[in-house]
Amino acid sequence: MADLLRISGLKASVEDKEILKGVDLTVNDGEVHVIMGPNGAGKSTLGSVIIGDPRYEITGGSVFFDGEDITGEDTDKIVKKGIFLTFQNPIEVPGITLANFIKTALEAQTGERIKMWDFKKKLEATMKVLQMNPEYADRDLNVGFSGGEKKKAEILQMLMLKPKLAILDETDSGLDVDAVHVVSKGVEEYKKNVGGALIIITHSTRILESLKVDKTHVLIDGKIVTDGDAALIDTINEEGFERYTA
């Protein structure tokens, strides 16, 4: 398997405060990686920095995707290569419907005009998988959506945009059991139909129950302190992060 994402010695700061202090991480095609760690360890920052969030300054190291150096590239150019990041707090954008936005994003990514009819059918089917009320397609992007609907809308975009690598940032946090179940179904759908790789940033394991995890990483204070397989998740669930923070 070729490596899809290779992060080497990545350092990033925000307002002169270093958050990532030398992260190394390699994700191969189709693999499922889990990143765990206590609050404030830099998990979400890692996701943002991978897709070039301009709030962070990269002060060292590199990010390669599909063999290309994407370190410091503009966000839109990075994601067009096939990366998708779900947001913990998806932004409300008045004046554009969820459906129109997904179509716009698809057209921006593929550079092709998309036929409305085909698109609508695909969108409806995908919303059904996520048990979303079809009316949400015509509502303004995230405006007035509940926390659960916002997360579903993120997964919907992921399924429609079909990235080679999806980074799920705490997608399960703040969701009730049913919503977590639906989101998990969406992630399964992504594995099954798109076959892409996943980086799942989480501090709970509810979303992972139905997924085959290839590798687990523990991120503490801006560094990956240990790597393991799926079994590491159970260990951490039992013991917490204390052993790594000492």
């Binding site: 969030d53 709030r55 839109d76 994601v79 936005f101 994003a105 975009q157 945009l161």
Partner: peptide
């Protein structure tokens, strides 16, 4: 940034807003 994370250029993101 949110709109760019879905593939829109900065210019297109601002125009959309």
């Amino acid at each position: 940034f949110y709109l760019m994370s879905r593939g829109l250029s900065e210019e297109d993101a601002k125009a959309l807003i």
